[in-house]
């Protein structure tokens, strides 16, 4: 059965351009502002939304996303409220895929079955759970697939050709290639190596391959976008939010507007990719 994610990639393929995948932290700086950010994303050019679920111990994230998660938790964000945010978004948007991204423990404590039921009901289309490698597929991946939710896996430079089939085995929706070994927010590596890596993964799968980690500017989005089926931007968006917040928590500018401006720029980069690729 084609999911909302499958349909989105099919539509983009027809359009002949890569997807812009935008990550933001649910509940940062607070629920209402964050919801406003989310609602503005499709209009600014985001094709797929990655909704970050805050966790106290984000072991794969750099300082920017760590801080965003803590801000959200301080304001009472939780997995329950993150699902609520998705459900409210769905009330007015039937087409933009939502991928929840986070760590396993909040889901485990919520209860896997109950979580999947509520996720489906909230219009969640996919899951990225950083600390669930294929070795742990029985935990959530298999039940999620049964519930009709895509389980999106990260592939990294350490995932060699021998391991790739295992990583891809139960992956659906798309493959998220993490362009470097490191935490979120690190510098973008050599783009030619990224293209080679995407080619390598595509030899093993027909799924779309999107690339993330380190993309910050429209120009980078354009270059990466010409080599992949999509570009993920996370830390740059999280930083755009952070830059509107004073140390005392008050706002110097509208976070939703700051994110919209940022995403519009990235979107122009991604839309230029088709032309770049055709050149």
């Amino acid at each position: 059965m084609a999911t909302r994610i499958d349909r989105k990639f099919a539509a983009l393929k027809a359009e002949g351009r890569p997807a812009l995948v935008t990550y933001f932290m649910g509940g940062d700086p607070d629920f209402d502002t964050s919801f406003k950010i989310m609602k503005g994303l499709p209009g600014s050019g985001s094709d797929i939304i990655e909704l970050g679920v805050p966790f106290s111990d984000p072991m794969a994230d750099g300082p920017a996303i760590q801080a965003a998660g803590l801000r959200a938790l301080k304001k009472g964000m939780s997995l329950t409220r993150t699902l609520e945010m998705a459900a409210r978004f769905r009330e007015t948007d039937e087409t933009t895929p939502i991928v929840l991204m986070g760590y396993y423990n909040p889901i485990y404590i919520y209860g896997v079955e109950r979580f999947l039921k509520d996720a489906v009901r909230s219009g969640i289309d996919g899951l990225i759970v950083v600390d669930l490698p294929p070795e742990m597929d029985e935990e959530l991946c298999i039940p999620a697939i049964k519930a009709g939710i895509n389980f999106i896996r990260l592939a990294t430079p350490t995932t060699d050709d021998k391991r790739l089939p295992k990583v891809l085995q139960n992956t659906s929706g798309f493959v998220y290639y993490v362009s470097m070994n490191g935490i979120t927010g690190s510098a973008l590596p050599d783009t030619s190596r990224v293209a080679a890596a995407v080619e390598r993964i595509k030899k093993h799968t027909d799924l779309p391959v999107v690339v993330g980690f380190g993309v910050k500017t429209a120009e980078q989005a354009k270059v990466i976008g010409s080599a992949a089926d999509g570009v993920v931007v996370g830390t740059a968006i999280v930083n755009a939010v952070a830059n509107t917040i004073n140390p005392d928590g008050s706002l110097v500018a509208d976070p939703a507007e700051a994110v919209a401006t940022m995403v519009q720029g990235l979107s122009s980069g991604v839309r230029a990719s088709r032309l770049a690729a055709a050149e």
Binding site: A60, D131, R153, L154, P157, T158, T159, V178, N181
Partner: peptide, 20 residues
């Protein structure tokens, strides 16, 4: 073999670390 002691233990790590 999977590193489990009953329901405890396991390998809950990011893909980057799995090969390591």
């Amino acid at each position: 073999e999977e590193g489990m002691f009953g329901i405890f233990g396991g390998r809950f790590v990011a893909e980057t670390l799995m090969p390591l």
